[in-house]
């Protein structure tokens, strides 16, 4: 089985804050991490290889420093890494991102399963996985919480739904997006860390993947950001302290009065 794992480097959003006094972004100490959902994608890719053989290639589109995310994936056990990096990719929305990744995957050619995270925590769109499978014209299964069986040309998985789950079978190749419940990601091994240091990472530009310049980056993006603003603050609530019995009586009284309960 040849597995491709798509990962994204994202700012750890805990650190992106608005300074309420100046109404500006506080960036100090913003760390870049591998999108947490993609850690499950990496882990699942490695587990499939451990069971069925083959190799795991990890791929990301991003600025040059996204190389760090790839090296982290290699330290966990991925075999190869591809970095799509080019100024021409800047400003890509999910349409243009999926297109670029699908063109890189066409260049890699040899794959059975593509695994993405459920969503990236910076945009939370969950659109890039389905976008890639549509551009490649392959089937997709989103919200996968368990892989039940893999045989040549066949996969059976459990897909999370609002009510429970659905068991789904598909032909290969297929694209999966995975949720947190699927596994418990491992820690990097010493061997992995050494490999991550020395591995030659392929760096591809828009020209290398044969991308149509009109379909990538900002020019290729059907959506644009029109305005960015701070969410309106919720009006200050009522703080109650003191004797528990008294507070609760008062609270329940008010909740009843306002027909909240």
């Amino acid at each position: 089985m040849n597995i491709l794992v798509c990962i994204k480097q994202v700012p750890e959003t805990t650190d992106v804050r608005i300074n309420p006094e100046t109404n500006t972004l506080v960036r100090d100490g913003v760390q870049s991490i591998v999108n947490p959902f993609d850690m499950y994608a990496i882990e699942e890719g490695i587990r499939i290889r451990e069971k069925h053989g083959g190799k795991v290639t990890v791929i990301t589109m991003g600025p040059p420093q996204a190389e760090n995310a790839l090296r982290e994936a290699v330290s966990l056990g991925c075999d190869e890494a591809v970095l799509l990096t080019d100024r021409a990719f800047a400003g890509a929305d999910t349409w243009a991102t999926s297109y670029a990744l699908s063109m890189a995957i066409r260049k890699i050619k040899d794959f059975d399963i593509i695994i993405c995270g459920k969503q990236a925590i910076d945009g939370d769109t969950a659109q890039v996985g389905p976008g890639i499978s549509t551009f490649l014209d392959i089937p997709q299964i989103t919200y996968v919480k368990k892989i039940e069986d893999i045989k040549p040309g066949f996969i059976r998985v459990e897909r999370l739904t609002e009510e429970g789950f659905t068991a789904i079978e598909s032909s290969l190749p297929v694209l999966l997006t995975v949720v947190k419940e699927i596994n418990e990601p491992r820690l990097p091994s010493l061997k992995g860390k050494m490999k991550a240091k020395s591995l030659q990472i392929a760096k591809w530009t828009a020209v290398d993947i044969g991308a149509n310049p009109e379909k990538i980056g900002l020019p290729g993006s059907p959506t644009i950001v029109n305005r960015i603003f701070t969410p309106p603050k919720k009006a200050g609530g009522r703080i109650m302290k003191g004797d528990a019995v008294q507070i609760v009586t008062e609270l329940v009284g008010e909740l009843r009065e306002k027909h909240i309960v």
């Binding site: 976008g131 059907p222 959506t223």
Partner: peptide
């Protein structure tokens, strides 16, 4: 933006060659 909508609409947006804004 349900498990169905989030699987379906991104596919339609690509097929229909248009933009999609989530959530």
């Amino acid at each position: 933006a349900s498990t169905i909508g989030r699987a379906l609409i991104p596919r339609v947006a690509i097929l229909s060659n248009t933009g999609l804004t989530a959530d």
